[in-house]
Design a protein around this nucleic acid. Structure first.
Length: 399
RNA sequence: GGUGAGAUAGUCAAGUGGCCAACGACGGCAGACUGUAAAUCUGCUCCCUAUGGGUUCAGAGGUUCGACUCCUCUUCUCACCA
């Protein structure tokens, strides 16, 4: 039992520091039903979570299954400084209203995965604001510049003479101080957070918390392209609020290799079950597409519902496998005869008439499933299903 | 504060007076192929009812028959020095 718990907890992790501590905590839970705390910080800058963020949530949920109380830390104070991680530019400052709005959308999304009864939401502004200038000085005296420069990110930037703001030095300290205040037993985060996570250990020692948090780091999830990390700005993400059909299609579009990564980091299936699937695919008894469909269904079901998952799958088969027309397509109408290129533009499936002409020339445009090639085509009264490529559809009623 | 370099399409990045709607790369879109929206190959990638017209190369002026290219000012970025 303990062994299985440890296996599930370390599943997919990039690095664990002080696993002995985790083992002890688990043992205490299994033997005496003792709880412990797992801290995880979230930055309330963007309102929407994507699957990349849920890797951590998933891990927290696993911990909850084995007795953890999650400290869901909202970094409302630290958000105003900006974490230096991987960024050279200073980030824009958020207003209180923005933050409040972001947080509420955050937590509703997070509780689709986390057990609310085992989660404490805490805001670091509550204690960091009270720290004051003296407390801040005290805090910053615990660390030397040399030590700070050990951080990979800083040393690289220092060596290449990229500017480092002094406030950026403060960020890891504050994050570490959060762990002091919360007396966390374990903290989890992405691999890019290593330095900050270790700072928690260090400060807990300095401030005499009597225990040092164990640290578990999760790798950064790749985006749809399978190469770069999933992020909104790269537009390779699957948002947890994406529509069921979209979400299903996006998951299905990842490569077969990436699929296993998603299974490891996102699926609720056990490692044994996943190993079974892998064997099935390797010896040819299981079609990789089937396996991927299963993953897609699981993910859609988690963020929407089982019914949505089933209908998303049916819809996908209908449109892509049998190349039929989707059920829900936007409808438009217009008065009088209309030129085809203009019609495509009005129905929002082409950005300009120039683009529409190019696509007609290429044979990408279909009306009622029939390919057209006449650039000058006028649509007279009637109903038409317009289609560009495989994915863009519109229904147009010409009066 | 001083000095120097730079700002070109979604991004990176060529172009140093007409050959420029602007090389190339990435991204994006489409076609073929496929279990898939993956991989691969091919085409397209400012706008406009188009063998033509219009508006673009940080912004504002100027020189010129003609400017992304030269000059002046402005804004912003970056580097070096203090």
């Amino acid at each position: 039992m303990l062994e299985e718990a440890l296996r599930e907890i370390s599943r997919g992790s990039a690095e664990i520091i002080d696993i002995e501590r985790i083992e002890k905590l688990l043992k205490a839970f299994f033997d005496e039903g003792k709880n412990y705390t797992v801290k995880c910080g979230f930055d309330p800058t963007a309102p929407d979570l994507h699957l990349g963020h849920t890797v951590l949530l998933q891990k927290l949920a696993t911990f909850q299954k084995y007795g953890a109380i999650v400290q869901f830390l909202i970094g409302d104070f630290t958000a105003t400084i900006g974490d230096p991680t991987g960024k050279s530019a200073t980030r824009k400052v958020l207003t209180k209203d923005d933050i409040i709005k972001n947080i509420s959308s955050y937590t509703t999304q997070a509780f689709k995965i986390l057990d609310e009864s085992k989660t404490e939401i805490v805001y670091n502004n509550d204690w960091l604001e009270k720290l004051g200038a003296i407390g801040m000085l005290e805090l910053s005296s615990t660390l030397t510049v040399a030590r700070m420069l050990e951080r990979d990110d800083f040393s690289k930037r220092f060596a290449s003479q990229t500017p480092i703001a002094v406030s950026e030095f403060i960020y890891p300290l504050l994050q570490g101080y959060d762990s002091v205040h919360l007396k966390s037993d374990i903290e989890i985060g992405g691999t890019d957070q290593k330095f900050n996570l270790l700072m928690g250990r260090q400060l807990q020692k300095v401030y005499d918390v009597k225990k040092q948090q164990a640290v578990l780091m999760m790798p950064i999830l790749e985006g749809l392209d399978g190469v770069q990390k999933m992020s909104k700005s790269l537009n390779n993400y699957i948002g947890v609020t994406d529509e069921a059909n979209d979400m299903f299609g996006k998951v299905l579009s990842i490569s077969d290799d990436l699929m296993w990564r998603f299974y490891e980091l996102l699926s609720a299936k056990t490692l044994d079950e996943i190993a079974q699937l892998k064997i099935g695919v390797e010896d040819g008894t299981l079609h990789p597409k089937k396996v991927k469909e299963e993953l897609s269904m699981e993910i859609v079901e988690r963020f929407h519902s089982k019914d949505f998952a089933i209908s998303a799958k049916e819809e996908f088969d209908k449109v892509h496998a049998k190349s039929q027309i989707p059920t829900d397509i936007p409808e438009f109408s217009c008065d009088g005869e209309i030129w085809i290129a203009k019609a495509l533009l009005d129905c929002n499936i082409e950005p300009s008439t120039s683009q529409a002409r190019r696509d007609i020339k290429q044979g990408a445009v279909k009306i009622n499933q029939e390919k057209i090639s006449d650039m000058q085509l006028q649509l007279s009264a009637g109903e038409y299903i317009l289609q560009v490529g495989k994915r863009k559809f519109a229904k147009l009623k010409v009066n």
